[in-house]
Amino acid sequence: MWWPFTSSEPKKKESAPLRQDRQKCYEFRDAYFACLDHAGVVKAGDEKPSGSCLSEAKNYEKNCAQSWIEYFNQRRVIAEAQKERLAQAETQAQNARR
């Protein structure tokens, strides 16, 4: 749908992300994830009922594109699962050595 006064607006705003934008996003992401770690939450959003990490979440969402947020959150879950699997493999290997 084409709107006379708004059509070109979002396209103009969609400029390439620059290094400083990315850096800012990474920093707020890391701060948010550190808070989640502290709260013992892996999946982003699971901390909401407890009311923790509110300001971190807000900054994260303000400084990162939605698609990036989804991607980083997903990757955090995957990385966490991987860590668990690696730890399991390690204990298995140690049991086998015994």
Binding site: A16, P17, R19, R22, A65, S67
Partner: peptide
């Protein structure tokens, strides 16, 4: 692509 979050940069 330019909107690439972390790997491309």
């Amino acid at each position: 692509f330019t909107n690439c979050p972390d790997i491309c940069p």
